[in-house]
């Protein structure tokens, strides 16, 4: 029987699609399509009974975000998921800078959860901005 959750190590970074989308496409659908995704090893997708395009919830102790599962072309990397850098990845990475200014954008422990509601989709950049606006003490509150 397929698992509901899988423990993973999360790494983030540039993908070519991310690099193209950030040039004038940040407030368009191009951006979540490029960066609101979770590249997974095919064997990990099998464990969760996922097919490419299914929504997943990625959770760490720093936050959670809905992403679209994508089959990685850089396999095998079982137990490791790659999320392109951007506001989606940054909801769940470790902000601790180890006293040198650099947060841990790579190597964060987390969980990928299969979502039963296949209609779930990653938030758009506009929705993420609205989330940030609702911060406690925000000037928009």
């Amino acid at each position: 029987m397929a698992k509901r959750e899988l423990k993973v190590i999360i790494i983030t970074g540039r993908s070519i699609e991310q690099g193209i989308a950030i040039e004038g496409g940040k407030m368009e659908m191009e951006y979540p399509r490029a960066c609101g995704v979770c590249y997974m090893d095919p064997s990990d997708m099998e464990k969760l009974d996922l097919i490419a395009g299914d929504p997943v919830l990625v959770r760490t102790k720093f936050g959670e975000v809905v992403l679209t599962a994508v089959r990685s072309e850089y396999a095998p990397h079982e137990g490791i998921v790659f999320i392109p850098m951007g506001p989606w990845a940054n909801k769940i990475i470790d902000p601790n800078t180890s006293s040198i200014g650099m947060p841990s954008f790579k190597g964060v422990e987390g969980v990928v959860q299969k979502l039963e509601d296949l209609g779930k989709r990653p938030p758009t950049a506009t929705e993420i901005v609205e989330e940030v606006k609702k911060t406690e003490g925000s000037k928009y509150a």
Partner: peptide
């Protein structure tokens, strides 16, 4: 877009 969420919150 590129800072951890907790850091971006102060910009709001």
């Amino acid at each position: 877009s590129h800072f951890p969420r907790k850091a971006t919150e102060h910009l709001a």
